[in-house]
C-alpha cells in the first residue's frame, strides 16, 4: 500500500448512486444517508477504481505533495 496516497471525498458533489461502494474491491465505502462514507480506510489499497467510476467526481485519490 502506498502511504503517500489519500482517499478523498467531496460530499457536496456526491449524489449517493452507490457505484463506488458496490464495485470497491475491498469494501471500503458505504452509502450513509445518501452520501458516500469511508467505513474501512485501513483496507483501502488506493486502486482508484472508485475515482474512475464516480459519475460525479466526488471521490478520488490524492497524492501527497501535489
Amino acid at each position: 500500500m502506498e502511504n503517500n496516497k489519500k482517499l478523498v471525498i467531496n460530499p457536496k458533489w456526491c449524489k449517493g448512486c452507490g457505484i463506488c461502494a458496490e464495485f470497491c474491491p475491498k469494501d471500503v465505502l458505504k452509502i450513509v444517508h445518501n452520501k458516500v462514507q469511508i467505513v474501512n480506510d485501513e483496507a483501502c489499497i488506493k486502486c482508484g477504481l472508485c475515482e474512475l467510476r464516480c459519475p460525479d467526481y466526488a471521490i478520488y485519490i490524492e497524492k501527497e505533495g501535489e
Partner: peptide, 28 residues
Amino acid sequence: MPSKLIEKTMRVNRLPHIWCPGCGHGIL
C-alpha cells in the same frame, strides 16, 4: 476541492453536473 484532473479539464464552477444520480455520462 476536486481532483487535479477535474480541476484542470472541467469548468469546476459549473459542477456538480445536471445528470441524474448514477448516470453513466459523468464516467464517460
